[in-house]
Amino acid sequence: MQHNENSITQFLTHINQNVSPAERVVSAVSGSGLIAYGLKQGGLFGAALSLLGGGLLYRGATGHCHVYDAAGITTADDRPSPSSRVHVKKSVTINKSPAELYQFWRNFENLPQFMTHLESVKTTGEKTSRWVAKAPLGASVEWDAEITSERENERIGWKSIEGSEIPNSGVVEFLPTSNRGTEVRVVLTYEPPAGYFGSLVARLFGEEPNQQVAEDLRRFKRLMESGTIMKTEGQPSGRSAKAKSAKA
């Protein structure tokens, strides 16, 4: 809950809302127009228009419509406001057997090969591991994780242990197809902490966590299928510092 807003905004946000944001904008704009037009017209007709405009403006500003209320209609989205929780679901199909992919992933020490934000993962026990992720400005963040569920060649679930700075969990499933390889389905959840540190973590997982996980899975596929992650960094171009025009 925000506390630094002015009282009018607070008043408005506490009214029972049953009008969607887009509708509210339309109502407010057209309401204002009608008031102006009505005042300019004058007379009984003009007054009626202004009143109608006032109603629309109220509807737009408060998000509450008495007509909708009477009819039991709501177009407002009453879900809770999104928290800083990052929830990502992605899948990729890889031309390898579930067993080959499972074995590679189950050794968490392999993950930094395709998850670029990870610096390292060290196995610390049969089900436990220590993860180090790259943070901005050369810093790093660390946490311990444990495997919470696994079915050989099918599924691995893991979770950071209680009290981690960045609570996170993941599940990966390896689903066979008839003849298209294996569908790899990943669900990841991060809860970046509040404050400055939290904003660093948010940056760590990228502006677009969905895109980042999609690229991680693409790299996983490339590594598994072609044995390498194709790159162009380091190839020559006319942009390199040593490049210069060659005179024939």
């Binding site: 190839q235 020559p236 171009s237 006319g238 040593k242 490049a243 210069k244 025009s245 060659a246 024939a248």
Partner: peptide
Amino acid sequence: EVMDVPDP
């Protein structure tokens, strides 16, 4: 333009 660039 024909340029002198590093070898690949």
